[in-house]
Write a protein that binds this DNA or RNA. Structure first.
Lengths: 225, 225
DNA sequence: GGGTAAGACTACGCACGAGTAGGTTGGCGG
DNA sequence: CCGCCAACCTACTCGTGCGTAGTCTTACCC
């Protein structure tokens, strides 16, 4: 390691490919999240990544491909976070609770990545839309499976025609709640998860009458604010 | 020189301003809904409206302003639809049910208008975002008020800190369900409203056990349209 | 019937941003 | 110490699409 005592080199030294790619992706996620796909300019991404445009193109290709790469990385992280393996033997309700909690936790620590996934318009015909709708699909399926599992003991287990729309609505509710959270940041991730869990599992009819849901002794007192 | 008598002019005759404006707005809504704000071109809107570009600009200004005009019109229609005055004396649950029903009904007959409102990315900094988030806000407030009303008889009425996020989640769930509906068009608006109402009012915990919610016989015929 | 002004069109200017050509630097093997 | 290759940059081209200047034309009124 030559110390090389460089005078001031605000710009980049030569770096191996892997490091640069990561730098670029980080910058791209940030900029795409801030301005959206269309309003983000490759120039700004290059500048944020402390690199010049030709390098950008050399490493990750055109704007579409770059965006898709970002979505893939962030979606993988998200789905992994909420789909992580939990200890066996939990009741479906508690599993759902855990995953919701993980979801809000994830969004909290990875705001830019979340906004990248959520704040794009989904207009058919765009090349990246495929990629965008895919993560939502995966998340929905994951939830749907969970719901289906919750009814297997019942005399009439729910079919996917029942669980799927429910899961879709749940995902939508989660997204909307996150957006509300951003405007009221005084709440903890756990508190938000509780909120959503109560809505979902009990429903308003029960909440009105003062009942509420609690995780079955896995976590301690969850007062979110 | 004046020999150019009536050779066919398939293009537009002279029309009063009001009619043209409506024509233009209709076309703009359609195109914006189809391609989204950014990918929609003024040329295509002009062509769809059977008019030339300078007229477009003369009547409704630049692209931003045109889009805002579209959003305003469609948002007004939507909010009016779900906020319409219902006969007095309905229980909150039944009111909510009615409004959900109206919502799905509205979306069904005005798909383009709905997509215009829903499918745009909401990136801060865009001029139109203000307008877009406003309708969602209004709808949310409307629902929140309804929920608050449902708890006034209770010993501990809910505060807006409780009802507001719930309403936000509800709106999000509704949007997501509509999207799911578009992919499974075999259901009626009433059926979709029932679905959502069951999720919301009863919650999954109850649904699992086979219970379900029904409107309390205020409406007579099941005119499912 | 002729003047006129509003309604309408064709054809263009111009900015912005994606993508690239070609030169420059620095590390490394000989 | 010298050439050579790969990482890197500056500075450009070019397409696309918003917005407009300038011209025509038709309904209407005197």
């Amino acid at each position: 390691m030559e110390d090389h005592r460089d005078s001031e080199r605000p710009r980049s030294r030569r770096l191996p490919r892997a490091v640069r790619e990561r730098q670029i992706l980080d910058a791209a996620v940030e900029v795409f999240a801030k301005h959206g796909f269309h309003n983000a300019s490759m120039d700004e991404i290059a500048e944020t990544a402390s690199i010049s445009k030709p390098m950008l193109y050399a490493y990750l290709g055109a704007k579409d491909e770059l965006f898709v790469a970002c979505v893939r990385r962030e979606a993988a992280k998200l789905v992994e976070a909420i789909g992580a393996d939990i200890g066996t033997g939990l009741a479906p309700a508690d599993q759902l609770w855990h995953r919701l909690h993980m979801f809000f936790e994830y969004v909290h620590v990875n705001k830019a990545g979340w906004q990248l996934l959520h704040r794009q318009g989904d207009v058919p015909g765009e090349p990246y839309v495929q990629e965008l709708s895919e993560w939502r699909e995966r998340a929905t399926q994951l939830i749907a499976a969970l719901l289906a599992e919750a009814t297997t003991d019942q005399p009439q287990p729910m079919q996917s025609e029942q669980t799927e729309p429910f899961a879709a609505a749940l995902v939508g509710a989660g997204e909307a709640l996150v957006e509300w959270w951003f405007q009221h940041p005084d709440f903890t991730a756990e508190g938000m998860a509780m909120r959503l869990m109560n809505m979902l599992w009990l429903g308003f009819g029960e909440l009105v009458e003062g009942r509420s849901w609690f995780p079955s002794s896995q976590t301690e007192d969850p007062t979110g604010s």
